[in-house]
Simulated assay, not measured.
Amino acid sequence: MTVRKAEIDDIAGLSELFVDFNGKESNLTAMKKQLEVISANPDYYVAVACDGDRVIGTAMGIACYDLVGDCNSFLLIENVVVLPQYRGQGVGKLLMQALEDFGEIQHCKYVILVSESKRESSHKFYESIGYSTDQRGFKKQLMKHV
């Protein structure tokens, strides 16, 4: 099992992961364009975990600028997903470590992530790797048709 930065050739594997994640097919043309843009931006890192050539997990980190205190950046993590048959085997830990390493390189002071309230097994996973729930997060949909 390896973890690396996502490449354009990973689109089909990423699409498979996202179907499991949100139950919808991805627009592969739009995904390819978006990954090209993201890959060119040094503030983004899309990690993929692979078993041989198969993409089995992914997570995206975004280094965000801040104006508070010493103005250190913070890391936003999104789209953490591992294929069901690979859960509990350390894939998520490897992905999260890759993003945290990226965050340290980007001089991020802390990490923010949001997980749907019904994903209790995900919450236990995040807590097991050092994430706390002592703060409350909020999310608001802006695009109603999404």
Results as ranks from 00 to 15, higher is better:
residue 12 A to D: 13
residue 73 S to Y: 04
residue 43 D to V: 04
residue 2 T to Q: 13
residue 103 G to W: 05
residue 131 Y to D: 06
residue 114 V to T: 06
residue 25 E to I: 07
residue 114 V to P: 00
residue 115 S to F: 07
residue 145 H to A: 11
residue 86 Y to N: 02
residue 144 K to Y: 04
residue 117 S to W: 08
residue 51 D to Y: 00
residue 143 M to K: 14
residue 136 R to P: 00
residue 65 Y to Q: 09
residue 109 K to Y: 12
residue 16 E to V: 05
residue 67 L to V: 14
residue 99 L to Q: 04
residue 142 L to C: 08
residue 12 A to G: 00
residue 103 G to E: 05
residue 92 G to E: 08
residue 131 Y to A: 12
residue 54 R to A: 06
residue 25 E to V: 10
residue 6 A to D: 04
residue 27 N to T: 11
residue 136 R to K: 11
residue 126 Y to D: 10
residue 44 Y to N: 15
residue 104 E to K: 14
residue 13 G to I: 02
residue 79 N to I: 08
residue 123 H to G: 08
residue 130 G to F: 08
residue 143 M to D: 13
residue 110 Y to V: 04
residue 41 N to S: 15
residue 121 S to H: 12
residue 66 D to K: 13
residue 23 G to H: 09
residue 1 M to Q: 03
residue 125 F to P: 10
residue 33 K to A: 14
residue 62 I to T: 03
residue 89 Q to Y: 04
residue 131 Y to H: 14
residue 35 L to S: 08
residue 92 G to Q: 09
residue 112 I to F: 09
residue 87 R to T: 12
residue 61 G to N: 03
residue 92 G to S: 09
residue 39 S to L: 12
residue 3 V to L: 07
residue 108 C to G: 06
residue 125 F to G: 10
residue 64 C to H: 06
residue 56 I to L: 02
residue 115 S to D: 08
residue 140 K to D: 06
residue 89 Q to A: 03
